[in-house]
Each structure stands twice: as structure tokens, then as C-alpha cells.
């Protein structure tokens, strides 16, 4: 049975909870067992937050230090606070303008999301990018299918655009040139909770 452990981190308001739920829902739909934990309350007012997602036969929603396969970081300044969760050989996926490093894959999710007209979509961009990585528990196709099931048309189209932007960075070789989305500052789509 597959056992994958993910830590997601960032600042309150960046859509960490939304991201955790999406991955959890996709894995659940595949018939995997999922247990996760979220931060609520005082800390979400712009403070540091992280969530844990464990896929496989687990009871506890918390990941032990040194056990995570992936660390998804929406804010580079939070990465160091959470990198102790990674196991040896674990991969960090970071929202950053810097180039990749040893065991760390980077994507300028915030920049790409801004190009789409809504920085709040950065979480979905990061998810698209992460889904292209080896060993990531949900595939590009599965994420695409999941986000396509959103019933609000505007939200759906914004999320899918953000997703494709992240995928293109992860798969530049087979990046089919899709028409560049027109930036609109009043885009009401949002990559956040319902």
C-alpha cells in the first residue's frame, strides 16, 4: 500500500487549507486512505501555518520530524521552519523566483498567479507544478479532473488556468502552447475554500 506524507506551509491567507483539502480529496477519490490536519483560529490571521497530509494506513494526523516525503512551501521564509519534517531524500517544492537547488524544486507561483490577475491563485499554480514531480501522490490528470468538477464557472476557469501555468513549468518539454490568459484585475475566481 502506498504511504506518502506531505507537509504544506505558508502564511495564513495563502490557501494552505484549500490546497491540503484538494490533494486529500483527489487521493480519497482514488480509494486511498487519507488523514490530515489543519490550522485554524488565531494563527490564520497572517501568522505561520502548516498542515499535514498522510496518505496510507495512519491513525494520527501529524507527521513526525524526519518522515515527510514532500514539503510544499507557499512562502520561502516558512520553508526553514518546516524542513525538519522532511526525511532524508525528501523533496521541497517552493514558491520562489530562485533556481532549483539540491532536493528543492522551485516555481514562481506568486508571479504566475499575478500574471493571471489574482495572486491568491498561487496555491493552485504550486499544486500544478508539484503534480508533475516523480513520486507526488496525485497526478496532473487527476488534479485537472478534480478542479474541473468545480461548479462555479468563473472559479473553475481561474483554477484551471493557474493549474496549467504550474504544469507548464514542471513539464516545459511538452508544454503545449496555450493562449496566454488575459490578465484581469477584477477576476473573481479564487483558489481558496468554499
Amino acid at each position: 500500500m502506498i504511504m506518502v506524507e506531505l507537509v504544506l506551509c505558508g502564511r495564513g491567507g495563502q490557501g494552505i487549507v484549500f490546497l491540503t483539502r484538494q490533494i486529500g480529496q483527489i487521493a480519497t477519490a482514488k480509494g486511498l486512505e487519507v488523514v490530515s490536519s489543519e490550522t485554524h483560529g488565531m494563527a490564520v490571521r497572517g501568522g505561520s501555518i502548516n498542515s499535514h497530509l498522510r496518505i496510507g494506513r495512519f491513525f494520527s494526523p501529524l507527521i513526525r520530524a524526519g518522515h515527510a516525503d514532500f514539503l510544499l512551501s507557499l512562502d520561502p521564509s516558512e520553508t526553514a521552519n518546516n524542513s525538519h519534517y522532511l526525511k532524508r531524500g525528501g523533496v521541497t517544492v517552493e514558491n520562489s523566483t530562485l533556481p532549483d537547488g539540491l532536493g528543492i524544486k522551485r516555481v514562481d507561483a506568486a508571479g504566475l498567479a499575478k500574471n493571471l490577475g489574482r495572486v491568491q491563485l498561487e496555491n493552485v499554480v504550486l499544486l500544478g507544478f508539484a503534480a508533475t514531480l516523480d513520486g507526488f501522490p496525485v497526478s496532473v490528470e487527476e488534479v485537472r479532473e478534480h478542479l474541473s468538477s468545480e461548479t462555479r464557472a468563473q472559479v473553475r476557469s481561474m483554477n484551471l488556468m493557474a493549474l496549467e501555468a504550474g504544469i507548464r513549468v514542471g513539464h516545459p518539454e511538452n508544454g503545449h502552447k496555450s493562449p496566454s490568459p488575459s490578465p484581469s484585475r477584477d477576476g473573481r475566481g479564487k483558489g481558496e475554500g468554499d
Binding site: R11, V44, G46, G47, A65, E78, N81
Partner: peptide, 11 residues
């Protein structure tokens, strides 16, 4: 593994 001395962002 010992976690780092975390400096959490204050809310």
C-alpha cells in the same frame, strides 16, 4: 530529529 528553533510569524 530535533525541530529547529522556530521563529513563527506573528499573527
Amino acid at each position: 530529529v530535533q525541530p529547529p528553533k522556530i521563529k513563527p510569524r506573528r499573527p
